[in-house]
């Protein structure tokens, strides 16, 4: 098991990509995220773990302002991407989301062809000058999504016709096609079987070379397998944040220990 070796994992300090300072989120009257401070590093996989309803997905959605689509949600505090406040009125959430891509819990390919699914982002942002460029981007993205070999002969087939695991890798390919700097993943494997999960996890590990990846997961094994840093959320608080190896073997907070040993959650 990978879990056994996590202590030996090499850890190096990298540049901070996203940092949150005193971040609060309210859903109407509910105080969903309380005073979260966190520094997410570049070229690192950061896992958010915690029991259901602890706010980890909510916080994730703050990082690319997806909470803007929810009327009652309100965000306070600072979230800096490369030192710039993403909630500054000058920032266009549309441009921000091009830089901070997102993969959702349930695979959500558009009812279009596989090709058009991947080409969607590049087309919107005008990343390709011509059809040939676009072909290159689509192939590269599908390769990076580790699904190229399975779909290269049927790029014109509808994306919704793929299996669940393939759909999710298609969605990842679609997200990387816009060349984001950060990739947010909200429980990307919860709808997948173990084999598809393994493929996606392998993919996440490869993506780390170029992106900062933030993954929300319910599976502590998954967090331990894929991440270098782990943040534990509980009841809207960021309880503990540190090296994955340290969180799983030597948690500082009693709540973290209770959760990873299965006593709460």
């Amino acid at each position: 098991m990978n879990d056994m070796r996590i202590v030996e994992r090499e850890v190096e300090t990298k540049a901070v990509k996203i940092s949150a300072r005193n971040c609060q989120v309210y859903y109407g009257e509910t105080h969903a995220i309380k005073d979260v401070n966190i520094d997410i590093e570049d070229k690192t996989v950061t896992a958010f773990i915690g029991p259901s309803g602890c706010g980890k997905s909510t916080f994730l959605r703050c990082l690319n302002r997806m909470n803007d689509t929810i009327d009652v949600a309100r965000v306070e505090g600072e979230i800096l991407l490369d030192g710039e406040d993403i909630y500054d009125p000058k920032v266009d959430p549309v441009q921000l989301r091009a830089k901070v891509g997102m993969v959702f819990q349930k695979p959500n390919p558009f009812p279009k062809t596989i090709y058009d699914n991947v080409a969607y982002g590049p087309r919107i942002h005008g990343l390709a000058g011509n059809k040939a460029d676009l072909d290159v981007i689509v192939e590269k993205s599908l390769r990076r999504g580790a699904i190229w070999d399975e779909v290269k002969d049927r790029l014109d087939a509808p994306g919704t016709g793929l299996s669940g695991g393939q759909q999710q890798r298609l969605c990842i390919a679609r997200a990387v096609a816009t060349e984001p700097e950060v990739l947010l993943m909200d429980e990307p494997c919860s709808a997948l079987d173990p084999i598809a999960t393994a493929q996606v996890e392998e993919l996440i590990d490869e993506l780390r070379e170029q992106y900062s990846v933030v993954i929300v997961t319910h599976s502590m094994q998954q967090a331990a397998r894929v991440s270098q840093k782990t943040a534990f959320f509980h009841l809207g608080n960021l309880v503990e944040f540190g090296e994955t190896g340290q969180i799983f073997t030597n948690p500082q907070d009693p709540r973290t220990e209770s959760y990873i040993t299965g006593r709460i959650g």
Partner: peptide, 24 residues
């Protein structure tokens, strides 16, 4: 989830409606 997917890729609201919601 369709709208989220499109917005999450940096599409604007009208792009999302034109290219994802209406075709669906």
């Amino acid at each position: 989830s369709m709208r989220d997917g499109s917005l999450g890729l940096g599409a604007t609201k009208s792009e999302t409606i034109r290219q994802v919601v209406i075709p669906a």
